[in-house]
Amino acid sequence: MAKNQTIDKNAYHHGDLRAELLRAAETVLSENGIEAFSLRAVAKRAGVSHGAPAHHFNDVKGLLTALATIGYERFIETQNARQRNADTDPRAQLAASGLGYIDFALENPALFQLMFSSQKPDKSDSSLAAVADAAFEKLVDDVGNVHQSNPHENPAMMQDVMAAWAIVHGMADLMIAGRTGRALPFGNMDDSQRDATLSDLILRSIGE
Rank of each mutant, 00 (worst) to 15 (best):
A129G: 14
A81R: 13
L174M: 13
V168H: 03
S38F: 05
G181H: 10
Q5M: 07
L99S: 04
M189K: 07
I202L: 11
S149G: 03
L22R: 01
Q159D: 09
E26Q: 12
P109S: 08
D16Q: 09
D133L: 15
Q119G: 07
P109H: 04
K3W: 14
R194G: 12
T69A: 11
Q159E: 09
N154H: 13
A52H: 11
I167Q: 01
H14R: 05
R74W: 09
N188Y: 07
I176M: 07
I167E: 00
L17S: 14
I176K: 03
T27A: 10
S126G: 03
I206T: 07
D103V: 05
W165Y: 14
A86F: 06
W165I: 00
A19W: 02
F57R: 13
E137Y: 13
D122G: 11
H14C: 01
R179D: 14
V48W: 01
E208R: 06
V140L: 13
A183Q: 11
F75C: 02
L128A: 08
T27E: 09
S192W: 05
P121W: 09
F37W: 02
L201H: 09
F136N: 13
G170P: 04
I176T: 06
T180A: 12
N150W: 05
A19Q: 10
V161C: 12
D8N: 15
A172W: 05
L17D: 03
R40P: 00
L201A: 14
M115D: 07
N4V: 04
Q93I: 02
R82K: 10
A130G: 14
D141C: 10
A130Y: 11
S124Y: 09
Y12A: 03
E137I: 14
D133I: 06
I176D: 03
G15V: 08
D103I: 04
R23K: 14
R18Y: 10
G15W: 08
N80H: 09
G98I: 01
A172L: 06
P151C: 09
R18N: 08
L94D: 00
W165S: 11
R40T: 10
H169S: 06
M162K: 14
H147N: 06
K123N: 13
H50E: 11
L17Y: 03
A135H: 12
A11T: 09
R179N: 13
F116E: 13
V143K: 03
L67S: 08
N32A: 15
G51S: 10
G71A: 10
A135P: 06
